[in-house]
Design a protein around this nucleic acid. Structure first.
Lengths: 151, 151
DNA sequence: GCGTAATATCTCGCTCACCGAGATTATCGC
DNA sequence: GCGATAATCTCGGTGAGCGAGATATTACGC
């Protein structure tokens, strides 16, 4: 397993991309006067909205690995920034549903927009089959990592 | 640019991988009684050592987007944990060099070991050309993102 | 060379994100 | 109904990271 093997290079570049995306999020956060955590939360919330998964403080806290106190504080911040709205669940009235405001989706797009544009630009240089290879490789890494973490 | 386009799926899976790696780092940190920031710093320091880049507090702070006060506190923590050692640069005596201890490399391997094993396992299902495609795609995304961030 | 600007690091005081413990309110099984 | 369980929030405390500024060393203009 030397440093020059193709697989090791993949590991390095994957890690580098992760670091880079983190920094991107941190700088976006700083530029908009919020915290990296808020951006991460926003991503989870928009993702949930996109997939019609009901978002609650408890769910968000689990995604973020925050305890309930930290989660409450996080939701308080997001609500104060008018990015989400707390509404009571009419079915189970212990629960609070988090609804993302218009402002949040706008912010989300202003974050992802440039990233998407870059990936699109890069993708120009690859044909459909190659892109499919990349996608399936990353999906496999994702699933294998998720599974390893669950252990 | 609808949600089902191959490129959009790539963006989503890339983001998911990033989130997953973050959580991995956070859980590794928690398990070893350190903070996610410390793990990130460790990654940068090991990376620097691997590439023979001299690591100083200033350099580390720039990598992490921390100000000098935060950087000093970070290095203090790492030194207290015996992961790095401060040594004065004999050439430029304003500078402090950060040397990673044995303990740090061990910790680094215990973090990356499982990740590498997973990527290796996933890579089994792909031939050399495909892996090269993935590598060059990710490298392109990395460079384009780095450049966009520098702007 | 000599004063001044620039650079690297550190100190101090402070804010606030997050944690642990526990309170509160709502639901469910019996 | 009643205890057990679940979802959320409150309170107090810890510490990571910031802004401002101090200190020490080096580079530059004259």
């Amino acid at each position: 397993m030397n440093d020059q093997s193709p697989v090791m290079e993949l590991v390095h570049v994957l890690r580098a991309v992760t670091v880079e995306f983190d920094l991107l999020g941190a700088e976006f956060a700083a530029r908009h006067g919020l915290h990296p955590t808020d951006v991460r939360a926003l991503i989870h919330l928009l993702d949930a909205a996109r997939q019609d998964i009901p978002a609650t403080p408890g769910w968000l806290g689990r995604q973020m690995r925050l305890n309930s106190a930290g989660t409450t504080a996080l939701v308080d911040r997001l609500e104060r920034l008018e990015l989400v709205r707390r509404t009571k669940d009419t079915v189970d009235r212990r629960r609070v549903l988090l609804e993302v405001e218009e402002k949040a989706t706008e912010l989300g797009w202003s974050f992802f927009g440039p990233v998407i544009a870059e990936v699109v630009a890069v993708a120009e240089g690859f044909d459909t089959g190659e892109l499919e290879t990349v996608r399936s490789f990353l999906t496999a890494v994702l699933h294998s990592t998720q599974q390893a973490r669950a252990t």
